[in-house]
Design a protein around this nucleic acid. Structure first.
Lengths: 197, 197
DNA sequence: GTCTATAGAAGGATAGAC
DNA sequence: GTCTATCCTTCTATAGAC
């Protein structure tokens, strides 16, 4: 029986975490089932006792992560913050995700475009649409309320913001000197105020 | 004999362009030599009359592109613009590259991390270091001269800037309604002035 | 410059023993 | 839950004819 504070991860969870790290580091296609098995100290065939396929591993990783992330986004959306307040909160939540679910975010950043070409991963495209609707809506609300400047192309600002946040997974390392809050604050300062003196 | 205005591309160049498009679209690892041959209307074995290997194709693409890009960067560096002026010029040159060498930039964005693990592509890491030195130097000069604000982490601004520019290759489509100059101007406005009202 | 034919390696996945 | 053993597919690359 496992301690209440840190429930013992199942073997399945351990294997999934190992796969996540490798997928994030080398990419989905560049990681073989033999790589995963080696890292886990077992043989590749044994993986299939736990998972149907390599695809189902990455599927489970991305789906679980995205479901959790959207719980946070939905809570922020439903809050009574202003548009700018919500934008800020979502940026912070996203950097937290980069910190706490680094592998999943990296996989999403690097391999989503490829995975989306399979029907199985159709939910990724759907979530992207939802994400765009959320961001663009908040940006438009911010412009309408006078919080944000009105002379910029909202669609372009959206892409700028989205990419800027998620691409940070490429250099951010959990456990380093910068906390996700540090990074989020500096990014928000640049985004909101610019780097001009 | 070819017309002087548009020199006829060699068969080799045609094949390289086809490979570039596929690498950019699906990723290097997800593109097979059969895919390239199919797209060119020949059989995969025939590719090896023109190229040593699949790796040498992507190598030639990236090396040629980077050499050309750095000619522009070096010219900007050597100019008598202010630090901020140089930063602006480099951002514009980079968006031009996204426009004119879309495939190469996409390959670099998506596959460089993987390719760098081979000695053959060591020059990619070297160019990255050179790029960092250039950007960080300009940002520091801008702060020193009072053109740029001094309360931000220069290293972090550098990463922000670098990623923001290059990741645009994911959504920017050459020939669309936005010119590279349009995008560069809006990005520079956000970066320099922010989106606050 | 391309085709036929195929070698040789590496990959995902399975069946059944332990 | 893991191992042994192996199948089948896919992939890069080669040799020689046309």
């Amino acid at each position: 029986m496992s301690a209440a504070s840190t429930p013992e991860p199942s073997r399945r969870d351990e294997l999934l975490a190992i796969a996540a790290g490798l997928f994030a580091e080398r990419g989905f296609k560049n990681t073989t089932v033999r790589d995963i098995a080696d890292a886990a100290g077992i043989l590749s065939g044994s993986l299939y006792h736990h998972f149907d396929s390599k695809e189902s591993m990455v599927d489970e990783l991305l789906d679980t992560f995205q479901t959790e992330l959207w719980k946070q986004y939905d809570a922020i959306t439903a809050s009574d913050l202003t548009a700018k307040g919500k934008l800020t909160a979502i940026v912070r939540a996203s950097f937290d995700a980069i910190d706490h679910h680094h592998s999943e975010v990296a996989i999403f950043q690097n391999d989503a475009a490829y995975l989306t070409t399979f029907e199985r991963f159709g939910y990724l495209a759907e979530r992207n649409r939802k994400f765009r609707t959320l961001w663009v809506g908040l940006l438009e609300d911010g412009v309408a309320s006078g919080e944000l400047r009105s002379d910029l192309d909202v669609e372009l600002v959206y892409r700028f913001l989205r990419d800027t946040v998620w691409v940070a997974v490429r250099w951010y390392r959990p456990g380093g000197s910068l906390t996700p809050a540090d990074v989020a604050d500096q990014y928000l300062t640049i985004l909101l105020e610019g780097i001009n003196q």
